[in-house]
Amino acid sequence: MEINRLNYKCTAQENWQGRTDGIDFSQQRWHQRIRCIDLQQEEIPISSSGETAFALIGFSSDEGVRRNGGRPGAVNGPAAFRKACANLPVHFNEETNVYDLGDIYCADGDLEKAQQELAKLVTSALQSGLIPLLIGGGHEIAYGHYCGINAAVNSKKSIGIINFDAHFDLREKGSTGFSSGTGFLQIANDCLQSGKTFNYLPVGIQRNGNTRALFLTAEKLGVAHIPAALFAAKSQDEVLEKIKAFIDSVDHVYLTICMDVFSAAFAPGVSAPAFTGIHPDHFFFSCLDFLIKSNKIISMDVAELNPVYDEADRTAKLTAAIAFQLLSAN
């Protein structure tokens, strides 16, 4: 694929460094299995039918966060993610391939161009048979990511978005332009223009993090949500029933996780910390497992990892644990 040099940087293989316990597959860690691809020199590898291959893609941007009045720093989220993941033990199948396709950058504050380049890369990865896992960067990653999925999917197939997030991100475009808070309204408007149904389920919504106007916007768009107050083990059956009903209503699921969905005690390194967010406990990871086993996830991202504010790398390590869960099911 053609890629804009201003918006792309490959990952050097030496960026994946870690402990080595041996070369036998049972002893290996992620840094020994991940292959970096320079898209200015190589084509995206093709995954044959029946094989499992993942594409790690960084989105080095916090321009949308800046426009939205949040704390900058998520631009370095992909680098912090790689560092946190390097020593993870390999628990995916030996036949599973994991490619690091590098980072898309937001150059000169041109967020829209960066999102377009991200969309192109996502489309190419999907068309090559890879399962994308994107790492942000601000939650402006969502609009570019969705556009890439939409371009790759048969127009007759429906795409459902499950967003673990403290916020709806259904804001109107402001004076500074589109931002990390407008992505899902942009998607809703695109769906309206193309005659598609807007299938969106936010999970972990906080009342103290969203204006009444945003709740009204969600209602107007027909968006049901699972509030943070409900997302607990005691309500497990009700939560899983709502998620299952949503999954059953769509052909593909785009899973996006904004790290500010979690309590700041567990994820301090985010652009907009939530003191009363959900806990990354057994119930949360069982929900992830439930989603994976549906076999409907077409692409995934984790957004707003902000290493500037990440005490003891807690947020980066949590992001790595989420990635481990997503990849180790295969």
Results as ranks from 00 to 15, higher is better:
L327H: 05
L327V: 15
T276Q: 12
A232G: 10
L221W: 02
S235R: 04
E219D: 11
D313F: 05
S294E: 03
A264I: 06
V308A: 13
P268L: 12
L230R: 10
C287Y: 09
L291S: 07
F284N: 11
P273W: 11
I297L: 13
Q236P: 02
V239A: 04
S286E: 14
E311H: 14
A272S: 14
A229F: 10
T319D: 10
A321Q: 14
A232I: 09
V261Y: 02
V223A: 01
Q236N: 06
H282Q: 15
S263T: 08
A229T: 12
P280W: 09
Q325V: 13
S271M: 10
D251H: 09
S286Y: 03
V270C: 08
D301E: 06
A233N: 09
P268F: 12
Y309N: 15
K234L: 10
A264F: 09
H279E: 12
G222N: 05
C287K: 08
H252R: 04
F262S: 06
A224N: 10
L305S: 07
A274F: 02
H252S: 00
F324T: 03
K317D: 10
K296M: 07
T217M: 12
E238N: 00
A321G: 00
L230S: 15
S271W: 01
K317A: 08
L221T: 06
M300Q: 13
L288G: 11
A321M: 09
A267C: 11
N295W: 01
K242V: 04
E241L: 05
K244C: 02
A233E: 15
C258R: 03
D310S: 11
A224I: 01
L288A: 07
D289H: 14
I278G: 11
K317C: 07
D310I: 06
I322A: 13
K234Q: 14
L305D: 08
I278A: 07
A320T: 10
A232Y: 01
C287W: 08
V270M: 06
F283S: 05
D281K: 05
K296P: 06
F231N: 06
L288M: 15
S249V: 00
E219I: 03
K296V: 04
P307Q: 07
L318Y: 03
G277N: 05
F231Q: 04
L230K: 12
T276V: 12
P280A: 09
Q325W: 01
D260E: 14
A303P: 00
I322H: 13
A312C: 04
